[in-house]
Amino acid sequence: MASWTRVFNDGKPFLAMVSMQLSYAVMSIVAKCALNKKMSPHVLVAYRLAAASVLITPFALVLERKSRPKMTLSIFVKIMLISLLEPVLDHNFFYTGMKYTTATYTAAMCNILPALTFALACIVRLERVKIGKVRSQAKVAGTVVTVGGAMMMTLIKGPNLELPWTKGRNHHIGRSGTSEDHKQDLMIGALMLIAGCCCWACFIISQARILKSYPAKLSLTALICITGTAEGTLLALVAEWRNPSVWRIQFDIKLVAAVYGGMVTAFGLYTMGSVMKVRGPVFVSAFNPLGMVIVAILGSLFLAEEMYLGRVIGSIVIVTGLYLVLWGKSKDQPQPRSEGTVARADRQMDTIMVT
């Protein structure tokens, strides 16, 4: 019995990460369905952040009522600025890019985030490259390979990989699951997704600085979601000011996308925080490609998204670059259970929590 209990406890981080990636994959499919129903990506972001704020704020108020530091004007302005990067701009670019492409393509492109974060960290001198060290060579090579994979996915299409369950469905659903009035434009979609990842990477770099002066992680998350809701709503009002009907929401897939998106945000925060404290940030990041695979399967089943050889090869190249970067980063860190790694895991959790 003791051995089974140990196996179960050792397997909980794996089960938690698989569950989290599954929830994100389902969110991608639900969001794509809502976008295909002509839901505005800007309105979707505003509603999703509002739902996340409602879910997270009560926990922050109760659990950190005694440990929450004093809010200052300087800290509040910084929170407003980083919330504009992530989740507002990042999510808007993300869903707009998804509208122009497919859920599978979007999930694959998001794997370039670690490489972009490393590149930006080098630019602002938060990351030092010692080209004579194998770990630095791996990170540089991984960045180059990841960017190459993203270009391959965008520029090379290749033959269609017909799947048994998609035969005859694409003509009825629309090409790769897109709506009839909004056909795919891979170049625009790819640029939107890359811009979103850049915003996300900038957020990751900026977040660590704020945590030093405002270490209440749950309260900071709630504040980011609340300010992000205000900023996202304002952006949506400006973008859709000629079309007020886009705000109308009924008991349909659009409502599901908004509410479920908030639930995924809250669940992802708790799951990543818990797992990172035990296994470290590299362990969490290593599961990102699993989400891409799940999205590809669900997208082909429910949206009849077509798979092309060029995009599959590009996805494999991106994942290869991702693991090169992650391997290099893992060599920079001590063992996951040390105090330094726990603190680093907390900081990493805060940077990814509103995905």
Rank of each mutant, 00 (worst) to 15 (best):
G262R: 03
Q137R: 12
I352D: 11
K78L: 03
L303I: 01
T117E: 07
H91R: 10
T72C: 02
P69K: 02
L234V: 02
D332T: 10
S285F: 14
E231C: 10
G168M: 03
G321D: 03
A195H: 06
Y270S: 11
A304L: 07
A103K: 02
R248N: 14
F267T: 10
G189T: 00
N111A: 00
Q335K: 15
K139D: 09
K12S: 08
S338T: 10
L324H: 01
V18Q: 09
K329G: 09
R347I: 14
R169Q: 03
K130A: 14
L298D: 04
A108G: 12
T102D: 09
M292H: 06
Q184W: 12
V259D: 08
Y47K: 05
I188Y: 09
K277W: 10
M98L: 07
M151A: 04
V256P: 11
F94Q: 08
P41I: 00
G232T: 06
K277Y: 12
T146E: 00
V293P: 08
K157H: 08
C202R: 05
I131P: 00
I204L: 13
F203C: 09
D10F: 13
K167W: 06
V293W: 02
G132R: 05
A345L: 08
S213N: 15
L126W: 15
L303F: 07
F203L: 09
R169T: 08
V45P: 00
S330C: 05
G291T: 02
L269W: 10
R169A: 05
V145P: 00
R169N: 02
A50F: 12
V264F: 06
Q21C: 14
L85Y: 08
Y47R: 02
K331C: 12
Y214N: 03
G168R: 04
V54T: 05
N243A: 14
A138V: 10
V134L: 15
A222S: 02
A16C: 04
I318F: 10
T96D: 09
L237G: 08
C202L: 11
F76T: 13
T341Q: 14
G340N: 14
V282M: 11
R248V: 15
M17K: 09
W247Q: 01
R128M: 11
I210A: 04
A230W: 03
P69A: 06
F251N: 13
V282G: 01
Q333G: 11
M39R: 04
G174C: 07
F251L: 14
V275Y: 00
N170E: 15
T265W: 03
G177S: 09
L223F: 09
G132E: 00
Q333H: 11
T265A: 04
A257C: 01
F302T: 05
A286L: 11
W247C: 08
V256T: 06
V45L: 02
L322N: 03
G340P: 13
T178Q: 15
T320M: 13
L155Q: 14
Q250M: 14
A195K: 09
V246E: 04
L269V: 04
V88H: 04
Y24Q: 11
Q137L: 13
L55D: 02
S300K: 04
L116H: 01
K12N: 03
D181I: 10
R344D: 15
G142L: 05
Q250F: 14
T351Q: 07
T143K: 02
